[in-house]
């Protein structure tokens, strides 16, 4: 493993793409930053622009309007980038999968590196997903 990829795994900066989420997943993501779970001890940080991101975290169901935007955001990211499908909505579509505006689960649009299921996932599940991502 080269020095660069070692540093990469030690300092993942997360960009949060909120699709048509019910907002519960977004709140659970913020839980990870609090004192009880604190993902900064793994060197992770929430950043505000895709240009700084190493992880694209997609939460919420992707509807037909979001689809093109998600693809655009993915193309704007500096490579290498890891994509995480977050919550039941991101992984499969969850309760919105049969809706008439549903645009497909995330992995039909962009390649996904990790899935974190749950509706919403507990912070412990998020940490487990992160550990899996780090050991990949």
């Amino acid at each position: 493993m080269s020095l660069g990829s070692y540093c990469f795994r030690k300092s993942l900066w997360v960009f949060h793409f909120g699709g048509a989420s019910c907002n519960n997943c977004d709140i659970e993501i913020l839980d990870c930053l609090t004192s009880r779970y604190d993902i900064e001890r793994f060197g992770m940080q929430l950043v505000g622009t895709i240009r700084h991101a190493d992880v694209l975290l997609v939460s919420g169901s992707i509807n037909r309007k979001c689809r093109a935007r998600l693809l655009k955001v993915y193309n704007q990211a500096p490579k290498p980038i890891l994509v995480v499908a977050f919550g039941a909505c991101g992984c499969t579509g969850g309760i919105f999968a049969e809706g008439n505006v549903f645009g497909g689960p995330v992995d039909t649009i962009i390649p996904v590196d990790a899935y974190i299921p749950g509706c919403p996932p507990k912070p412990e599940a998020i940490l487990a997903g992160i550990v899996k991502l780090l050991n990949k």
Partner: peptide, 28 residues
């Protein structure tokens, strides 16, 4: 900052990991 917020905070080499990682990434 982390201690003020009752968190654990990043490891000691974190700033250097950040720089190393940024050099490893693509520049757009």
């Amino acid at each position: 900052t982390a201690r003020v917020q009752f968190r654990k905070g990043p490891p000691f080499l974190q700033p250097f990991y950040d720089i190393g990682k940024l050099f490893y990434k693509e520049t757009i």
